[in-house]
Design a protein around this nucleic acid. Structure first.
Length: 867
RNA sequence: GGGCGCAUAGCUCAGCGGAAGAGCACCGGCCUUACAAGCCGGGGGUCGUAGGUUCGAACCCUACUGCGCCCACCA
């Protein structure tokens, strides 16, 4: 006796019901837990959580869907998998908690003061670590979170310090003065990402330095910086200034003299061809200053006030000073020209809004040369593949031109730089288990978030300890992430992985997906009001529908547009599956017994197509072609299985006996296979349907679908294609003649042998057997490979001659166009001579078919009564 | 300024050397017992422009035009 099973499905369903119950079940069963290694090769993915429901925004949902699909397929293939949450979630959670805490205390960072605030942040990190973990869990993952695996915990801290010290000891970390983006309001440096460039209307002031023969005119949008000038630069080939190079000139207002130097950087075409050089307050000037060994006086304090110039401007705010300096120069008659407004782009602090000020300060750097070379070579050698391959070009552009990486940040949170300073200016870098001498102070800067992110593939596995996880899951197989993050994250992981893990790269394949766009292909942004909270769609359409939509749009490397109606379309697909399964169940579809040998053409055809589908899906998965596999599954399920096989199966089921039993077996087999193939893309609804259909416990760890090994039967497929063509032509005729699809019409089919498919054709086109007194009033011819078939129908009245003439005229035009095209090709001796023989044969065949078709239609038109 | 990419049906996108495709939208007809969250039928594109290569180009090459992204810069 087969196990008792409940083979009923409710006639209607809602995604929420199906998904809610299953999610709990899966969690309880441990399917979302990192699994122990087995004897199979391990497979791991370093990336955020797997279920769409926890996604912060639709971009996350997209990424999660891609990853989860890969993982589910691998699991069905018998591999153990591990996935890990991403860094971005951790930092988002910390931001949120810190802000919340501040608000609760009714204070702000500024009020608290920097020193006190930094202390508190570190304290909170310890205190709220658990809370952050909870929040991570709520973000949708039920990975077995442990403190050792969390960003802000001691484990990662150990990893960061170990890596820093190793790099430091190898001479790959150094400290140097550089310009940073300084926010006078926040009194902090900002990363480039925190700077918004905005077009503003400023002024361009041209002014004269020096006097008489040795005077030179320079221009600037920030006049006040002239107080910090230490040179004027011209292009070395510029004849106008050649005689001045190497001479000194007086810097107005300060009384200092500064040299005139020659530097390639200067564009002789721009302005006067002479540039003032303020090394401490402009990135280009800084580089010129470095090249020429110029002094670099800093002339502004932390709040953007002029300082240490020894002029009357000291103490003025920079904007106040801008006007004051301008007027002072005017008083000396040194202003040569003023352009106002002068439109140019100025960096602004993203958080506080004011223009940033480049400012000189001591920063920490990673010397990337040797690291970047390893990262480039790993891809060049083929050890690491990038998908789609076109993106490799972008990768090399980055990695081959990387400048030294500034890793110190003046932020409020993050991993502090593990360097301590002694009372007499000593400096020491300490590993995780080392303690600084009493009274030494730790560097207050924190590390760039990408420093710790770059450790992710191995720090999450317990590194620097040689853990079992590390041995099993490093290197990982596939990294899935957006192309926008290739530079920031992927390259860092490559460099650090190769460096820390003895030259073993952190993953074998890098899969880059696009960005999620709105339905019109526009970038989602809060200001445009087109950004999407996935939760809303999840509530309305379900996770399956959202995932399927996202995957269906995921063409390699290209962006993914998404709109609500497409998600709705995916939900309808879920409903289609639901109803198809209900049909199969109510007709007794079987999955336990093998498919019998005695099969109809329809059975052979759908089984062959199912095998093809399995191969197609496998290939698409292996090539990360999500859109292609979603499309293949959608069309097979809807257009072939539901629209044709199920309809043909109804005829076979009606026959009863062995025929019906065979049909039940085929129905069950095909549907069961499709559900397996669809599971990675629509996990919830397929789980529900598959378990009901098969009576088995879960689809999550069921074997992945494999091709049957049954020999294909192309002749059966050809006959079914003929049936489909005949049915479509009859339906078209009926539609053109205004016959309601449901109305039964007596008809007689003559001509080519229909190989036992006449009953099916009649059922699908609602044609009755001719009864006594059958008097056909209309006829149509359909050309099939086996020969023409004539259908005579009694449509109880006069046919619509005009409609029929129109229909035939259209077919005739198509056939004539086809004939003309083929004849043109075959009449071209170059084509016949140079094209491959099989192409010529194909065209010849098409020409002959077109000729037959034209004759047939012409005869039919002639036979029509005059209208 | 440097680099990369995209222009195909009303919209969003596949196809990337041998007959122009999908989803949605649109038009007409149907409640045909799995499904109206559905079924059947239909209309719609000189594949951005101009040259070139080829027997043959949406597909390869060149130029142009228009969009998008990344990086850099804006004295």
């Amino acid at each position: 006796m087969p196990a008792q099973r409940n083979r009923d499905l409710p006639p209607t369903w809602t995604p929420a019901e199906v998904e809610g119950a299953l999610y709990e079940q899966w969690v309880a069963a441990g399917y979302f837990t990192a699994e122990a290694p087995s004897d199979r090769p391990s497979y791991s993915i370093v990336i955020p959580p797997p279920n769409v429901t926890g996604s912060l925004h639709v971009g996350h949902a997209f990424e999660h869907s891609l990853i989860d699909a890969l993982i589910r397929r691998r699991r069905m293939q018998g591999y153990n998998t591990l996935w890990l949450p991403g860094m971005d979630h951790a930092s988002i959670a910390v931001h949120a908690l810190v802000e919340k805490q501040l608000k609760a205390e009714g204070t702000t960072r500024r009020e608290l003061g920097r020193e006190a605030f930094v202390d508190r942040v570190w304290q909170w990190k310890a205190e709220y670590g658990g809370q952050i973990l909870d929040q991570m869990r709520r973000l949708g993952d039920s990975v077995d979170w442990t403190r050792e695996r969390f960003t802000m915990d001691e484990g990662l801290s150990r990893a960061v310090r170990t890596q820093f010290k190793q790099l430091y000891d190898d001479g790959l970390i150094y400290r140097a003065e550089r310009l940073v983006n300084w926010s006078p309001v926040l009194r902090s440096g900002l990363s480039d990402a925190e700077v918004d460039h905005k077009e503003v209307e400023g002024e361009l002031i041209s002014m004269r330095y020096g006097d008489g023969d040795t005077s030179i005119v320079v221009a600037t949008t920030r006049v006040e910086t002239m107080l910090g000038d230490t040179a004027v630069a011209v292009h070395p080939d510029d004849e106008r200034y050649r005689h001045l190079v190497g001479t000194q000139i007086t810097l107005p207002l300060t009384g200092r003299t500064i040299p005139i130097i020659a530097d390639e950087h200067v564009d002789p075409e721009f302005g006067t061809g002479a540039v003032k050089v303020t090394p401490a307050h402009d990135p280009n000037d800084f580089e010129i200053g470095q090249r020429h060994g110029l002094p670099m006086p800093t002339i502004m304090d932390e709040q953007g006030r002029i300082a240490n110039t020894g002029t009357e401007f000291d103490g003025m705010d920079r904007f106040e000073a801008r006007a004051a300096v301008r007027e002072a120069l005017r008083a000396q008659d040194r202003i040569v020209a003023e352009k106002r407004p002068y439109l140019h782009s100025v960096g602004h602090s993203e958080r506080s809004g004011e223009p940033i000020e480049p400012r000189l300060s001591l920063q920490w750097f990673v010397k990337v040369g040797p690291l970047a070379k390893m990262a480039g070579d790993a891809v060049r050698s083929g050890e690491v593949a990038i998908s789609p391959p076109e993106m490799a070009k972008r990768y090399f552009d980055w990695v081959d031109n990387l400048h030294d990486w500034c890793i110190s940040r003046q932020l409020w949170w993050g991993h502090r730089i593990p360097v301590w300073y002694g009372p007499d200016g000593e400096m020491v870098c300490l590993g995780p288990d080392e303690q600084p001498p009493a009274g030494w102070r730790q560097d207050e800067d924190v590390l760039d978030t990408w420093f710790s992110s770059g450790l992710w593939p191995f720090s999450t596995m317990g590194w620097p300890e040689r853990t079992a996880d590390l041995a099993t899951f490093y290197p990982t197989s596939v990294l899935v992430t957006g192309y926008d993050i290739l530079f920031f994250w992927v390259i860092r992981m490559m460099m650090f992985g190769l460096y820390a893990m003895d030259g073993v790269p952190p993953f074998h394949t890098i899969v880059l997906h696009g960005m999620v766009r709105d339905g019109n292909g526009k970038k989602m942004s809060k200001s445009a009001g087109n950004s999407v909270d996935p939760q809303e769609w999840l509530d309305r359409y379900g996770a399956d529908a959202l995932r399927f939509t996202l995957l269906r749009g995921a063409n390699p490397g290209a962006d993914v547009p998404i709109s609500e109606e497409w998600v709705d379309g995916s939900r309808r697909f879920g409903t289609k599956l639901w109803n198809a399964t209900r049909f199969a169940l109510s007709n007794g579809a079987t999955v336990d017994s093998p498919v019998p040998d005695d099969l109809t053409d329809a059975d052979h055809w759908i089984l062959d197509r199912t095998d093809q589908l399995v191969s197609e899906v496998d290939t698409a998965f292996d090539e990360f072609e999500y859109a292609r596999l979603a499309e293949a599954l959608y069309h097979f399920t809807w257009d072939e299985f539901c629209d044709w096989y199920v309809e043909l199966a109804k005829v076979q089921l009606a026959e009863g006996g062995a025929r019906a039993d065979a049909t039940r077996a085929v129905l069950g087999r095909v549907l069961e296979t499709v559900l397996r193939l669809l599971h990675p893309l629509m996990p919830f609804v397929t789980e529900r349907l598959w378990t009901t259909l098969t009576g088995q416990k879960t689809l999550v760890i069921a074997p992945w679908a494999a091709v049957s090994g049954r020999p294909a039967d192309p002749a059966a497929t050809e006959r079914i294609e003929a049936v489909r063509k005949l049915v479509t032509e009859i339906r078209r005729f009926r539609s053109d003649q205004g016959l309601p699809p449901g109305r039964k019409v007596p008809a007689e089919l003559t001509g080519a042998d229909l190989a036992g498919h006449e009953a099916a054709v009649r059922a699908l086109t609602r044609l009755d057997e001719p009864a006594d007194g059958f008097a056909p009033t209309a006829a149509l011819d359909v050309a099939l490979p086996a020969g023409p078939v004539t259908v005579r129908l009694d449509i109880s009245g006069v046919i619509d001659v005009a409609a029929e003439r129109k229909r035939l005229a259209k077919d005739l035009a198509a056939a004539e166009k086809e004939l003309a095209q083929c004849e043109a090709k075959l009449g071209n001796p170059n084509f016949v001579g140079k094209a491959p023989a099989d192409v010529v044969a194909k065209i010849t065949g098409r020409r002959d078919a077109a000729r037959v078709e034209i004759d047939r239609i012409t005869a039919q038109l002639a036979a029509l009564p005059a209208s």
